[in-house]
Nucleic acid binder design. Sequence first.
DNA 1: TGCCAGCGAGAACGGTCGTTCTCTACCCTA
DNA 2: TAGGGTAGAGAACGACCGTTCTCGCTGGCA
Lengths: 189, 189
Amino acid sequence: MDEAATRVLDAAECLFYERGIHAVGMDELRSASGVSLKRLYQCFPAKEQVVVAYLRRRHSRWLGEMRAFVEGHEPGSRVAAVFDWLDGWFREPGFRGCAFVNSAGEMGAGSPVVLAVAREHKVAVRGFFGELTGDETLATQLSLLAEGAITLAAVGGDPSAACQAKDAAAVLVDQMLSSSRFRSKSGHR
Amino acid sequence: MDEAATRVLDAAECLFYERGIHAVGMDELRSASGVSLKRLYQCFPAKEQVVVAYLRRRHSRWLGEMRAFVEGHEPGSRVAAVFDWLDGWFREPGFRGCAFVNSAGEMGAGSPVVLAVAREHKVAVRGFFGELTGDETLATQLSLLAEGAITLAAVGGDPSAACQAKDAAAVLVDQMLSSSRFRSKSGHR
DNA sequence: TGCCAGCGAGAACGGTCGTTCTCTACCCTA
DNA sequence: TAGGGTAGAGAACGACCGTTCTCGCTGGCA
């Protein structure tokens, strides 16, 4: 990837997330990145492609950082670690919710490709919970809690949502463990 | 309230929710509602006030409909009924997620009043769960599940999120009941 | 009947957007 | 040194936005 494109995406990641997509014009992207308008349009023939590239890169970074944090914990406490990581994120200055949900809400109705990128992100998050738990149902339920926490932390302005979600997640994990132990011990049929 | 204002809000509720706020201009609001631009600006001196009024009215309707549905069920199955109601909502044609989350994501960064209305909505939803359960912690956890279900149904395009959330909610409610029974029976101290 | 306040229709205005074009300066090659 | 292709700076363009203004009409009242 071009170094100019990287600078554009750096600027886009700050500005789009902070103020929303339609509130940031190409001119502002230009002045913030120091990349001329001509070159900007050589890298990204339209604004929508800047948005898509911004979201794709943010997806890699976000999931990578979460994964690195979680995998630094014992296997038995990794689900809880996810919510600890979310808690740290919620308390960062400038936290404004999920970039993918915000972008999809803003452009999704008129831009199927942005909606698709957001969807891929959510599928990947659920997949990560699947890796952690090895159980599809539990993975979905945990991703529900995580999504809810992100939404309530952003819109509700309450970072403690992560902690509440962590407690609920512990209950769900316990329940799943005991029910699967029960199933394997009783071995029905 | 003026009948013209009602017609404007009817149009706004359809258009803003379906296509997003900044994608719908005042001219389109005028033609869709049949209210002249002059009168529209008499009712709402700026677009932001249309947005706020739209959100407030939607909040009343949405919570009212959910409440009516839930209160038509036995007290013991009302938490589950919330998620049944969400399931029906998710399957409606044109479902596009939470209007408050979408609006806050689109305008929240530049419009504190819109963010505040969205926040009030989320507080009210949590309060409703509080009425149902009589337990603050459980209410928060259930609202996390509900918010997560809305997000995943909208962005992930998966209406079955409501069903998954319902199952998780049942686990959390059971756990809460058994732990409080335990506490009252053992009567610690 | 004459008059005036209020209305709707839509033009007008200033601003901003995404995108393209122009022009100038520069660098690499011959 | 001469020339041509490239890049940057920024003007230009057409479209659209939110908002205001104009203007002709209407309908109630003296």
